[in-house]
Nucleic acid binder design. Structure first.
Length: 417
RNA sequence: GUGGGCGUAGCUCAGUUGGCUAGAGCGCCAGGUUGUGGUCCUGGAGGUCGCGGGUUCAAGCCCCGUCGUCCACCCCA
């Protein structure tokens, strides 16, 4: 056993998974940049207070923060998510609106790890600030759906709900508190604890004994104001016009307190484990203000890389790309020819690798095979004497000798470049 | 944070009621093939059996602790 291992909840991503991660982020970038979102790269840690503005009832903030004091005495925290950072950046830079940005990178939460849940986990996401237009809600949700389909995912369901405006949320929370308190005796002890903390979250309980009480709980749609209700209807209409299918779930309350109005979640029906939520988001119309900026509406989503890739695995889509060079050079003379030839090929835009340590031809050919190269170039004593190179396409038993001076042209021909 | 399963070679795992020098497959290296990979054959390297303590004539196996990992809960992506 090695002396050192990665810390709990962290891991190394090696090839071919690392290539899959990069491809994942590239597909995401392409999807959202097509809609005008630009990349933002916020820092991985911020003043603790930035994240505290996410809300006192948000467990991500109260229980799971990776926080510490730096050498200057600042109390900082590794970001548990990126929406707060984006809003802080908005207040700091005051870009013209609508400000539409995307991000990709790791977040940190101090939790007990299990499958699809790590202490350092990657998300990709977008945020759009500065407008209340319901078409923007539909655009944001549509982009997430588009991204899933670009990954080849089919078994993804969109659940959507509205939480009304700030006041509505309070009123609804009050209603729920009254309702659940009346039925407290039939709730599980976990739900009773949740009730005291955040009545809305009781709706999220998946525990069997709670289900009946939850099913009869008052729905938020009876509580929300006219404006928020109209907004929701417009969002739904816009989604239908885009052919994005959805399911209204008036029990959908997400974990971060700041959500207002539109809230949504994507669930993979291909996943068997408990963690089927592969992405989610919503409006957070009060957050910029809470961070000291002007009242500014905002909406966005974040998608978990790990869970989305687990869903891809379950559906057999978006397989990890194999990394291979085009040419592998076998040099059984002294290794210097391999060096010269590799350099020449690379300068001409051909990817090339070679063997080291002057191993036997058999060993070098084996390495050529492993490299995935389409073509092997072989240099032995005969070739050096005759100023030739043996060109061997790896998928056939045939090989032919080429003049050393014709190397680049012959390789291009063999690779059909 | 709570509860449970599992830690044996680089990987996946076997190892009987505690009993010879701890095994297999894959991978890796070498040879068969003094100039040829992907198939085949032969051989080889590689292990503090997670770590620490205890019981025993004897521990990979039993007991205690600890760390890691997985699963469920909590929570969430």
């Amino acid at each position: 056993m090695p002396e050192f291992k990665t810390s709990p909840g962290t891991r190394d991503i090696l090839a071919p998974d690392s290539g899959r991660w990069r491809a994942f982020q590239e597909v995401f970038a392409k999807t959202v940049e097509a809609a005008g979102y630009t990349l933002i790269i916020p820092p991985m840690f911020e003043d603790l207070d930035v994240f505290l503005r996410l809300g006192e009832a948000t467990e991500v903030v109260t229980k799971e923060m990776y926080d510490f004091h730096d050498k200057g005495g600042r109390h900082v925290a590794l970001r548990p998510e990126q929406t707060a950072s984006v809003c802080r950046a908005f207040v700091e830079h005051r870009p013209t609106t609508p400000w539409k940005v995307w991000y990709a990178g790791p977040n940190f939460r101090y939790e007990k790890p299990q499958q699809g849940r790590y202490r350092q986990f990657d998300q990709v996401g977008i945020e759009a600030l500065g407008t209340n237009d319901p078409f923007l809600d539909a655009e944001v949700i549509g982009l997430a759906a588009k991204f899933y389909s670009n990954l080849g995912l089919k078994r993804v369901k969109l659940a959507i709900n509205t939480l009304g405006d700030g006041g509505d949320r309070e009123k609804y929370a009050q209603k729920l508190l009254e309702y659940f308190s009346r039925h407290e005796s039939s709730l599980t002890s976990e739900s009773k604890a949740t009730l005291a903390r955040n009545p809305l979250r009781v709706l999220d309980s998946k525990r069997e004994p709670d289900q009946e009480v939850i099913a009869n709980a008052p729905a938020i749609r009876d509580t929300i104001g006219k404006e928020a209700g109209a907004h929701f209807e417009s969002v739904l209409a816009a989604l239908e016009a885009m052919n994005v299918s959805y399911e209204i779930n008036n029990r959908l309350v997400r974990g971060l307190d700041y959500y207002r109005r539109t809230t949504f979640e994507f669930v993979s029906t291909a996943l068997a484990s408990a963690h089927t939520a592969i992405g989610g988001g919503g409006r957070y119309d009060g957050l910029v203000e809470a961070l000291g900026g002007p009242a500014t509406p905002g909406i966005g989503f974040a998608l978990g890389l790990d869970r989305t890739l687990l869903a891809c695995d379950a559906e057999g889509s978006f397989v990890a790309p194999k990394q291979a060079v085009e040419v592998f050079v076998v040099d059984t003379v002294d290794g210097s020819h391999a060096q010269t030839i590799c350099n020449l090929l690379r300068e001409n835009g051909v990817t090339a690798d070679r063997a080291y340590d002057l191993r036997s031809m058999k060993a070098q050919m084996k390495a050529a095979d492993r490299s995935g190269a389409a073509v092997a170039l072989i240099i032995g004593e005969d070739e050096v004497q005759n100023s030739t190179i043996m060109l061997r396409p790896m998928n056939s038993g045939e090989q032919h000798s080429i003049a050393r001076g014709d190397l680049v042209g012959e390789v291009m021909k063999a690779l059909k470049k």
